[in-house]
Design a protein around this nucleic acid. Sequence first.
DNA 1: GCGCCGCGTAGAGATTGCGTCAAGGCCATT
DNA 2: AATGGCCTTGACGCAATCTCTACGCGGCGC
Lengths: 227, 227
Amino acid sequence: MTTVLIVDDEGPFVRALGISLRARGYDVETAETGEAGLEIAARAHPDAVVLDLGLPGIGGLEVLRGLRSWSSAPVIVLSARHAEATKVEALDAGADDYITKPFGFDELLARLRVVLRRATPGLDEPVIVTSNFTLDLRAKRASTPTGTEIRLTPTEWGIVETLVRNPGRLVSQRQLLQDVWGPAYETETPYLRVHMAAIRRKLEPDRARPRYFITEAGMGYRFQPEQ
Amino acid sequence: MTTVLIVDDEGPFVRALGISLRARGYDVETAETGEAGLEIAARAHPDAVVLDLGLPGIGGLEVLRGLRSWSSAPVIVLSARHAEATKVEALDAGADDYITKPFGFDELLARLRVVLRRATPGLDEPVIVTSNFTLDLRAKRASTPTGTEIRLTPTEWGIVETLVRNPGRLVSQRQLLQDVWGPAYETETPYLRVHMAAIRRKLEPDRARPRYFITEAGMGYRFQPEQ
DNA sequence: GCGCCGCGTAGAGATTGCGTCAAGGCCATT
DNA sequence: AATGGCCTTGACGCAATCTCTACGCGGCGC
């Protein structure tokens, strides 16, 4: 399920957009101030954010920067301001798109699809095959080579996905905790240890000698594709 | 070097944009028809494409679809048409952005930076290759030329990274200690000696005669790239 | 030639980090 | 109200890593 966070202080607009998104199968969270937006983002880790630049209190740009300090989720900025310098500033601050009001919902939805398909790499090739298991990221299905299903819990999927989306690369414990649990859990390394053990029990042929999910002591974990 | 392909039939515009891009360090290829665009894309493998929708001959959308059949390079579509349905069509056909004319160069350049940073993350993280080892800083991975993995501990990575990020330059012991251990450890030069020995054991062909990690007595260490 | 200084090496001990297990709590489902 | 799945949390043993010390070597100045 894809979660979209809308941060905007115009109630009617937010409600209308929310309905549109939900009708298309997205999960929607909303916030009417920048502070609330950052808070909800930290709790719900949305897959994309629609952010109004003209917010009361802390401005849209601050929200964008706050978000970018830990999240790489795509952000679409909405604004009534047409000035080129403003656009460039927002885009360089980490926004993925900048749409000026007024605009059509269909365009916004299309642009949302664009940033979502770019932000989740490996979605075009979402099946990972090793000689011990097969992962279908899109279907969220794991199975043995013979086809028997392996059940992974939501947390285990979260960890496996971020590791598998960075094949061969080291993923720091910090990033794993941020991706799966949210920025407030950066230091909860014990969680990671427990769940890594569970993942290995299910996916490694010999959990004492991991072959796919490698520990790098003091740094993080690495998914090692076959060959 | 980042290569941008411009497909547009308005000569003066193409020339002006080309100059702007080259001035910013991009490599630029241009094509005035869709057919030529596809041909050049296949030959040059651009990192991004700026594509005019209103082309003579085969249309911009065809070019986009042709491109997407084999390439995932980001495409920014330019068009005079404001109709929402046209935008949605292009975006769903694989475009990463859709800009309506007239527009400012600064905005186009900013949007180009956006799609490039999404499409090629970590473009700036270098890979260091010598005839004795390979270092991939982004993946935090060291290996022999034959592909065997070399394991470096967190401290060793810290030292190697600061040395390798200053190729050929002397890095003082003080700076190394500060970077890796923190400012309170400025005087703990014995640590450095011990860990440099470990690094050489793993990365130098003959640790008695260091070739890559050179000691400058009384001053510091230097990473000597090959050649 | 002699002594000093800085460096490389080795190894023991301390520390940190990791894997494992099991108990307890929360939530949804029945 | 009871069950089962899942996540959190703490305790423990083990492995990896770092710290710290001792020693030997070589260059340099005297």
